[in-house]
């Protein structure tokens, strides 16, 4: 009984709850949960194309969720993955529009630029916290809005493609496009939006997992998050750790922005993220801030995101119901204590 309760209190319970709530949301919309779930699952897992789309959404959530996990593990509430994602995409898109060269050069450079863009955005919050003890919660939130204004201004002005009608950069040259997901047996993904970016995301998770468990840096980062005062006394330079952790966290989210630009949009515009950076917080928490479980959680949320559209189209349940469910999952999961103390944090 106790074991059952513990499992229910954890991520598994959250997922179960998600389905119950989804059923409620469908009932409110006057749709039989059977039809609703049918549409949700056939739209996300029912065939090659839906699965590919689910994996595209998984990837889009996975990068920012990994970034959020890293910051949370360091005891820093990075709520700015949305802005960091946008800045990563902006950097990649701005340069990618004019960068001609072989794919093996262009793609890595664009992804790296994404990390730089997101890293700068996270780093600003880190610097403000390290230097001025300014709450990273508020600064990352403010930076989300500032990123949106900045990107909106740039794509409507200096970076606007003269050929496009809307506000967006010129398209990337095809050499900057991420290759399609490799063909498995007779299964080809060439006609879907699925690219190798899902593999890059999973590799990133593996690297982060290695950093957390095997390296001295990861040890110090976790110490800083678990017990800030003990960490400080163990010789860790806390302001430096704050700066590095938030910059790295932003870089991982920014990499995700670049992956969307090079893999899906092939250009940059501010519609790059319909709120992936916020949903990513839910993903990170469901994944217990553990990179490998975050991958699993991202897949679960990928199903919701991809299936939500199908549910709206085929069963008439507004896709925004999905976001209500995500929020409720966060609320429930928050009942677990992630941090020993926040007494030493910046004023919020």
């Amino acid at each position: 009984m106790k074991v059952v309760l513990r499992v229910l209190a954890g991520p598994a319970g959250a997922l179960l709850l998600a389905f119950v709530l989804a059923a409620v949301a469908m009932l409110i919309a006057g749709v039989s949960p059977l039809d609703g779930f049918g549409a949700l699952f056939s739209g996300s897992l029912g065939g090659r194309r839906p699965i590919a789309e689910t994996l595209v959404q998984t990837t889009a959530l996975l990068f920012p969720a990994l970034g959020v996990s890293l910051a949370f593990r360091a005891g820093l509430f990075n709520i700015g993955a949305e802005g960091q994602l946008l800045m990563g995409g902006l950097f990649a898109g701005a340069v990618g529009a004019h960068f001609a060269g072989p794919g093996w050069l262009v793609i890595p450079v664009l992804l790296l630029l994404g990390m730089v863009g997101g890293g700068i955005w996270g780093g600003i919050a880190g610097w403000l916290r390290a230097r001025f003890n300014a709450s990273e919660i508020i600064s990352t939130l403010m930076l989300n809005f500032i990123a949106l204004s900045l990107a909106g201004y740039l794509v409507a002005g200096p970076l606007k493609s003269p050929l496009a009608s809307g506000a967006e950069t010129a398209p990337l040259l095809p050499s900057g496009w991420l290759p399609a997901f490799p063909t498995i047996g007779s299964l080809s993904f060439g006609d879907t939006r699925l690219t190798i970016s899902i593999l890059i995301a999973i590799a990133t998770a593996a690297v982060l997992s290695f950093i957390f468990t095997r390296t001295v840096f990861g040890y110090e980062l976790r110490a800083a998050g678990e017990a800030p005062e003990a960490a400080r006394r163990s010789g860790i330079n806390m302001p430096r750790m704050t700066l590095i952790a938030l910059a790295l966290s932003g870089a991982v989210a920014g990499l995700g922005g670049a992956a969307i630009v090079t893999g899906v949009l092939h250009r940059f515009n501010t519609a790059l993220s319909p709120g992936y950076g916020y949903t990513a917080i839910a993903v990170a928490l469901v994944g217990d801030l553990n990179p490998l479980w975050v991958c699993v959680a991202a897949f679960g949320f990928g199903i919701l995101e991809a299936g939500g559209l199908a549910m709206q189209a085929n069963a008439g349940v507004p896709k925004d119901a999905i976001h209500v469910i995500e929020g409720l999952i966060v609320l429930v999961l928050a009942a677990r204590r992630y941090f020993a103390t926040r007494a030493t944090g910046a004023p919020v």
């Binding site: 509430f77 709520i79 919660i137 916020y278 917080i281 839910a282 928490l285 929020g327 409720l328 999952i329 966060v330 609320l331 999961l333 928050a334 677990r336 204590r337 992630y338 941090f339 926040r342 919020v348």
Partner: peptide, 8 residues
């Protein structure tokens, strides 16, 4: 956790 709950 108040921050996480607020985000939710």
């Amino acid at each position: 956790d108040q921050i996480v709950a607020g985000v939710g």
